[in-house]
Simulated assay, not measured.
Amino acid sequence: MPHVDYYFATLSPYTYMVGSRLEAVLAKHDATVTYKPMDIMALFARTGGTPPPQRHPNRQEWRLQELRRSAKKLDMPINLKPAHWPTNPAPSSYAIIAAQEAGGDIGGLVHAFTRACWAEDRDIADDAVVRDVLEKCGFDPALADKGLLAGAEQYGRNLEDAVNSGVFGAPTFVTDTDERFWGQDKIEDLDLFLSGKL
């Protein structure tokens, strides 16, 4: 049974664009997954990346065009300049870590947090928003308060795991054979790889 480590950031518009496509590929191949939310800004600092607000205006403008085109291709609503971006990704990430321990539809929860940021203009650092998203995805909203220290420690480990696994951006999918797929547009390649065609 194949396994995929899914490195992502709840602040990432490209994580938002993953939607439910990853889970569909995993189900097709009877693959398991570990969801690994990480601090994308810290990852950039560790791996030579530049946070979007610090990039040259040419790169910033291209990014907005690419986001618009990608969202349109996927038929997904997107606000290219969300009201609460960037914000603190830790509260939503800790909630996902706690929810993964509890069990349930983690893929749906990841998508709900990223959609809240990129399509609903909600602040995913706000405790009320975190609780609401958890509840609407079928989780106990009290998970927002449970295991905060453990969540913080796991969040830190996820960053270290990402760096050690060759990850430099989000979303990145790493197979148990160390094949790495970076970007929401590489899900088809992941599917082909798990099918033995790549």
Rank of each mutant, 00 (worst) to 15 (best):
M1T: 09
Y7E: 06
F8S: 08
T10R: 05
S12C: 08
P13E: 07
Y14A: 07
Y14W: 14
T15Y: 11
V18N: 09
V18T: 15
G19K: 00
G19R: 00
G19A: 07
A24I: 11
L26V: 14
K28I: 07
T34I: 07
Y35T: 08
Y35K: 02
M38P: 04
M41G: 15
F44H: 08
F44M: 12
T50V: 15
P53K: 05
R55L: 08
H56D: 10
R59G: 04
Q60W: 06
Q60K: 11
R63E: 09
R63M: 14
L64H: 11
Q65R: 08
Q65Y: 09
E66V: 08
L67T: 04
R69E: 11
S70K: 10
L74T: 06
D75I: 03
M76Q: 12
P77W: 13
N79C: 10
H84L: 00
N88E: 14
P89I: 12
P91F: 02
I96S: 04
I96D: 00
I106V: 15
L109H: 10
L109F: 15
F113D: 03
T114Y: 13
W118P: 05
A125V: 05
D127A: 12
V130H: 05
D132A: 14
D132E: 15
E135T: 10
F139S: 04
L143E: 01
K146A: 13
G147T: 10
A150T: 12
E153G: 02
Q154D: 12
Y155T: 04
Y155N: 01
Y155A: 05
N158M: 04
N158D: 11
L159S: 03
L159Y: 06
A162I: 00
V163N: 02
V163E: 00
N164C: 02
N164W: 05
S165Q: 00
F168L: 03
G169H: 00
A170E: 05
P171E: 07
P171I: 11
P171Q: 09
W182L: 11
D185V: 06
E188G: 00
L190Q: 00
D191G: 05
L192F: 13
S195Q: 08
G196A: 07
G196R: 07
